Amino acid sequence: MTEGPRMVRMVRIALALLLLAGIVTPAGPAGAQETLTFRLNHLPWGMHTAYYAALEKGFWKELGLDVKIIPGHGALEAVNTVGAGKEDVGLGSVDTVLVGQAKGVPIRAIAMDMYQNPSCLIFMKQSGIAKPKDLEGRSVGHPPASTTKNILDAGLKLSGVDLTRVKVVNHPVGAEYQLLASGKVDAFGGFCSGQVPTLEEKGFKVGAISLKDMGIDAYGMMLFTNDKTLRDRPEALVKFLRGWLRGHQWAYQHVAEATKLVLKHRPDRNMLEGAKFKMILAENRADEARQRGFGAMVDDKWQKSMDILVRAGIMDRPLNVREVYTNDLVERAPEAREFATLLFAGPPKD
């Protein structure tokens, strides 16, 4: 055998061994990519910037994934669809995920998206609402599949509010602005980094009571998957997390351009979504992200989150924290530490 053919054969053998070890991934045609479905907690807005960056910049495709993002209408919807195995990954709030798990929904958190819980009650300043107790005898709006209701109810109850004296008004996602402006609800549950800036931009003078104002320290939003998907498709989930984190890195350095990618999927919004994204980034500089990589979680904060819901009677008892979440997948993504380094190095760039 001549030197040339021998070298080619050795290279082919080496590549085959690397493929078997999972160290390199064959490029392959787009049609050969693995499909993965991802259910958002809401219609697209600033908090989803990294996901749309990953989609539009092709970061998931580079990893061999064809990801379909499905807009949502509340985190409870995501818990139900992913729990039933209809979708592969969901984005949900700490309370909807925990309450779902307590009811036997087979899901597990795989990465933290928002370390600080963004939930708050939003109202007009002229309403006279200044503290949680002021909501007694008033109405509060929530979508039927609300992302925030359970944790806000827990905060109100632990603040001494009689929830039987608070009227709950169910409304479609997005209707909260009109309902508040017209006086059909006195307040609604939302995100401090979401609806508050939107209302202020429209000229409304609004106030907000956050979970932090109520003395509540709980996790916020997280990525989760069905137990069967976790067992059967761990490699696809790692690729999903890697693409998402690459999206975060790119968006952090190109906020304006990344915001335009979100607006492509939500044309009724504007560049204010970029400011919201920056607010969320500033709130995501958590110790566990710095120490273990972005997306990593810790037992203590999960336990605190469960204890809040148990004390308020939203959950009957705490769950085994080791069955609630896993860091196994996000810790396999080198981008987790790369993005954490970027996040703590300085402010994002437009």
Rank of each mutant, 00 (worst) to 15 (best):
E283S: 15
V97G: 00
V255P: 00
L281T: 05
V89T: 01
V140G: 09
K202A: 15
P267G: 04
E283Y: 10
A14K: 15
L329M: 09
V79K: 01
K301M: 05
A256K: 12
Q101A: 09
F191Y: 14
G293H: 10
A154M: 04
C192A: 13
A21R: 11
S193E: 15
K131H: 13
T341Q: 10
T35R: 15
K239Q: 01
A154G: 03
W60P: 12
L199T: 15
R108P: 01
L179D: 14
D217G: 03
L135G: 15
K228I: 02
F339Y: 11
Q116F: 06
A14C: 02
V238G: 01
A333G: 03
Q116E: 06
V105H: 03
P334M: 09
F204M: 10
A53P: 10
T81C: 02
R266V: 00
P29M: 06
R231K: 13
F277I: 02
T225S: 07
G64C: 06
L18Y: 02
P143H: 07
D287N: 09
E62R: 11
K228E: 04
A75S: 13
E176M: 12
E323R: 09
M214N: 10
A336F: 12
D307S: 10
F188T: 09
A312S: 15
G293Y: 05
G203K: 14
V330E: 00
L261V: 07
R242N: 02
I107K: 12
A312F: 03
N327K: 01
P267R: 04
V330K: 04
R322S: 14
K131D: 11
V89N: 01
G155I: 08
K125C: 13
T198D: 06
T229L: 07
V24F: 04
A16M: 13
A102R: 01
W250M: 08
N170D: 15
T2C: 03
E257A: 06
K212I: 04
P44I: 14
